[in-house]
Simulated scan of single mutants.
Amino acid sequence: MAPFHWLASLPLTLCLLRADGPGTANPGRIEHLADFPSRFVKAHHVDVWLPTGYPQPGTCYAVVYMQDGQNLFDPKNAYGGVAWEVDSTVAALGTKLRPCIVVGVWNTARRFPEYTPAQPYATLPPATRARLEQAQPVGPLSDEYLKFLVQELKPYVDQHFQTSPKRADTFVAGSSMGGLVSLYAALEYPKVFGGAACFSTHWPLSLQENTPAFTTAMVQYLGRKLPRRHRPRLYFDYGSATLDAWYAPHQTRIDSVLRAHHYSAANWLTRSFRGAAHNEAAWKKRVPPALEFLLGY
């Protein structure tokens, strides 16, 4: 890809953050790409998890691109000191999944605008946008963020690691706002991403009020964008405690759109987890069903 060539000569700080150790279920190793540069957004740290035995000769690994990458592997970096431990989880799932690597893209101070789906946001009533912009004055940057993922990061990963670049082997995942932008990625780039896992998707968009406005915008957007061909596999979930207590009616509306567009159990799964809260500890427990849905045999 032409947009990638300018990155080839840029020095990236690459270091081994974690390797196999006692009690870690042989989770493999993590390579850290510090301040990965972009023409579209500010630089992001990126962690690339590689399973034990990587690279196996003749194996082209599927890739899962995950938002909020600092929360995925190391409790020292994770919000609240609790990591998802995706490396140990994937290792423990073993042959239930096809061989894969995980690319964790750290968030920045611009997390909210980078994770806000721009096209649905643009259709919100002006008064709703004005209220949202009181809390977050920077408008959506998700289109730029997705260009970074698709035009810069993915080509780099496919060139420097032993991956399968096919859409059927390329996935995106995230929680809360990260769930929103992961869904947006799968729908804006259906020829790139074969599926998305959206944990506790933050449909209201606001932390101050639980309103249906953005869900309505997403329902309209889904109606326009759900593809007939290159249909991505979609996983959604939500809990019932803390912020997740808002989500059930919103998810029901989204599910209705998927059903109307003839999504079935073959390419769509929504799960609810009674008592689960909106935090890393809850999402950590839900990584197995999500990855088995996207990457299972």
Score class of each variant (00 low, 15 high):
1 M>V: 11
6 W>M: 01
12 L>R: 12
15 C>W: 13
15 C>F: 12
17 L>I: 12
20 D>T: 07
20 D>H: 04
21 G>S: 14
24 T>W: 14
25 A>P: 01
26 N>V: 02
29 R>L: 13
29 R>G: 11
31 E>T: 10
32 H>Y: 15
36 F>R: 08
37 P>H: 09
38 S>F: 12
40 F>V: 12
41 V>K: 06
46 V>D: 09
50 L>V: 08
51 P>V: 06
56 Q>N: 07
59 T>E: 13
65 Y>D: 08
69 G>A: 13
75 P>S: 08
76 K>N: 10
78 A>Y: 11
78 A>Q: 10
81 G>K: 01
85 E>L: 14
85 E>Q: 12
87 D>A: 15
87 D>I: 14
88 S>R: 15
91 A>G: 09
94 G>H: 08
94 G>N: 14
98 R>C: 14
102 V>W: 08
104 G>N: 06
106 W>T: 04
108 T>L: 06
109 A>T: 12
114 E>H: 11
114 E>I: 12
120 P>Y: 08
122 A>D: 11
123 T>P: 00
125 P>Y: 04
127 A>M: 07
129 R>F: 10
129 R>A: 15
131 R>M: 07
133 E>K: 11
137 P>K: 04
138 V>N: 01
140 P>T: 07
143 D>G: 09
146 L>M: 10
149 L>S: 05
156 Y>V: 11
157 V>D: 05
158 D>A: 03
160 H>V: 06
162 Q>W: 04
165 P>R: 02
165 P>F: 07
168 A>K: 08
168 A>M: 04
172 V>C: 13
174 G>D: 04
176 S>R: 02
181 V>W: 08
181 V>M: 05
181 V>C: 05
183 L>F: 07
186 A>H: 06
186 A>R: 05
188 E>V: 09
190 P>R: 05
195 G>T: 08
203 W>K: 00
206 S>R: 04
211 T>Q: 12
211 T>L: 12
213 A>C: 07
213 A>T: 07
215 T>P: 06
216 T>E: 11
222 L>G: 09
225 K>C: 13
228 R>S: 07
229 R>K: 04
232 P>F: 07
232 P>L: 05
233 R>M: 12
233 R>L: 13
237 D>W: 06
237 D>P: 06
238 Y>Q: 05
238 Y>A: 13
241 A>I: 02
242 T>I: 03
243 L>E: 02
246 W>D: 00
246 W>S: 00
247 Y>C: 03
248 A>F: 07
248 A>N: 01
248 A>W: 03
249 P>H: 02
252 T>C: 03
253 R>A: 15
256 S>L: 04
257 V>W: 06
265 A>V: 04
268 W>V: 08
269 L>V: 10
269 L>G: 02
271 R>P: 01
276 A>I: 00
277 A>T: 03
277 A>L: 01
279 N>A: 03
281 A>P: 00
286 R>W: 05
286 R>Q: 00
286 R>V: 00
286 R>S: 00
288 P>Q: 01
289 P>G: 00
291 L>R: 01
294 L>N: 00
294 L>R: 00
294 L>G: 03
295 L>Y: 03
297 Y>R: 09
297 Y>T: 05
